[in-house]
Design a protein around this nucleic acid. Structure first.
Lengths: 330, 330
DNA sequence: CGTCATGGGGTAAACGATTACGCAAAGAAC
DNA sequence: GTTCTTTGCGTAATCGTTTACCCCATGACG
């Protein structure tokens, strides 16, 4: 916009050395005397020289940037992961392209194309609603998947969903629940099936019978969950606990219950999943399963960086521990 | 990772033309016959050729990417803006680096350095807590500021904060409030002072006296606001309305009031600001001032794109309309 | 004294695009 | 029939780096 930026040749000229030498001191690859180093470094500082990233990338085929694809950056859970990723990768000197796919496979693919065209060194991929068959093209570069992933995914990171489901259900059982509704949105998602598996496991462990009419059906989101609870209530279905596989659904349930003047946690207890801030700030702070977004992000980065540094790691499936955050709905 | 990527020379060879010609058909700059065009395009498609972005950038000095700096991506308000920015700029073919500054000036600067080093074509800058003096370096490239901005900022976009403050206060007054507490976090922020100005204006317009002990003091966040309301209550200060300059603070107030068994909106009415989802999903859905994040994002992009296309626009200050979302706390 | 490693540094070829310039052929204009 | 313009290309320079390779001192070592 203003003055022409100084390039390596300017520095070289002023230092009375060749550009090769300047490059060498900048990259600390040896073959220069301490005096040369000093002079070059001084000039670099004086003129605020920064190497042209594009030229460098062109030559080295590395861009020092990665892409992160999320279904919805507006969702606190994903935002937290993005934040953790960014924090963890900053020290390595990477910048991150954030791509919101709107839970839409087409947009997702467009973003992938885009990222590949931009020559990113790696991708962290939180896919949308579907256990995607995966965009093959992305497998040409290092990639780690969070949660949803194709069969042949190289690296996968996810929370210990089964344990989460177990902990939530166990909490309800230990607090005396015998008939626990499970609210689930997309039954075909493996992560959610795992939570259901945990729910079953807890029932089995404590010898609580599993009741058919309380089992999951597709009821995504706040509204559907609220409606479902209202429906159960109207139908006279008895239940004394609700396990919602995410917090928005838990909130729907909570509102259905309070509107029906049912005491929580007196008559019905409730556990959510994710630990978004709503769960802490709603009228009755909710017990919920905390996913460790910090860990998830930093483990992603660890794995990705290792891949980007050329390490060949085979298929790996990293599981991040979850914990139960007991608040006032149980 | 796999096979070598095909480059423009491969295409050129196979099409029996020079690379110049290939480049021309790819960029549609004319000087080629329809037949050549067809052949090149076919080959491009067949081999999935995409131009190397780094080479292109090196030559043209344009990277087709921008940076967005936000204080906290985890905050729904900023996340929404980021999302809107991304949506609006996608058609222009830009990718976006998202940088979370953690409300920290040093990190902010580091990000700027980074973005400049990466040669972004433009920056959208939502600064942290301070009316920053601004990083001069960023003014070498197109930049638009949202809300907080330095004196000499070229382009600024912000919500009509004064009108928002006015609308909120007017609503309270029209619903009968005579003694309205205003909760504000950083009194030195111009955006927040504007909201206060609106508050004053409404009082003046409707002839409601302004009461000293209800005026703002630094009480950022949920906890401080809650505490402040509790303190006022204990001190026996009379008030029948609360205008919180953001929703988290409004929620703090709401909780303080409900815990004190004060009926909302019966005894005290309440208005927030921002319209984050918490305001809709808390126990008593709150009346709040909606900032049009869609508009904000898309206007940013419009202005930035024009600048990046070389248009010289002088200093401009774009104001985005706000609206009142009346819910159940008034 | 010859040989050989080593330190310090230069030359020039890449990397993959864009684009100024040149040039021949074909048609238009006179 | 000459000149001019347009069309359809090709040649080569250029963007700013990294890096393989070469070269010349210098000192160690036999």
């Amino acid at each position: 916009m203003d003055v022409k930026k100084v390039s390596i040749v300017d520095i070289a000229q002023m230092a009375n050395v060749s550009i090769a030498t300047v490059s060498r001191v900048l990259n600390k690859t040896g073959r220069y005397s301490p005096e040369t180093e000093k002079k070059v470094l001084e000039l670099v500082k004086e003129y605020g020289y920064t190497p042209n990233a594009n030229a460098k990338s062109l030559r080295t085929n590395k861009t020092q940037s990665i892409g992160v694809i999320v279904p919805d950056i507006t969702n606190e859970f994903f935002a937290k992961i993005v934040r953790s990723i960014e924090n963890s990768i900053l020290p390595y000197g990477y910048s991150v392209f954030v791509c919101d796919s709107h839970d839409n496979e087409q947009i997702e693919n467009q973003h992938i194309q885009n990222l590949i065209a931009k020559n990113v060194d790696g991708v962290i991929y939180i896919s949308g609603k579907v256990d995607t068959a995966g965009n093959e093209e992305v497998h040409r570069i290092p990639v780690v998947y969070i949660d949803r992933h194709p069969e042949n995914a190289p690296t996968i990171i996810q929370s210990d969903n089964e344990r989460g489901g177990f902990l939530a259900t166990e909490e309800l059982i230990l607090k005396g629940c015998k008939r626990i509704v499970i609210l689930q949105d997309y039954c075909r998602l493996s992560t959610l099936r795992q939570r259901h598996a945990g729910y079953i496991k807890a029932h089995v462990k404590y010898g609580v019978p599993i009741i058919a009419e309380l089992q999951p059906e597709d009821s995504p989101g706040y509204k559907n969950s609220k409606d479902k609870i209202i429906r159960l209530l109207k139908a006279g279905v008895k239940f004394d606990g609700v396990f919602a596989t995410n917090d928005m659904m838990a909130l729907g349930a909570l509102h259905a219950l309070t509107e029906a003047k049912i005491n929580v946690p007196g008559e019905v207890k409730l556990v959510g999943f994710d630990d978004i801030s709503l769960s802490a700030f709603c009228e009755i702070p909710m017990t919920t399963v905390t996913q460790d977004t910090e860990q998830i992000g930093s483990l992603c980065v660890q794995s990705l960086v290792r891949q980007m540094q050329g390490e060949k790691i085979g298929q790996q499936n990293i599981v991040v521990p979850v914990s139960l955050n007991v608040r006032r709905t149980t």
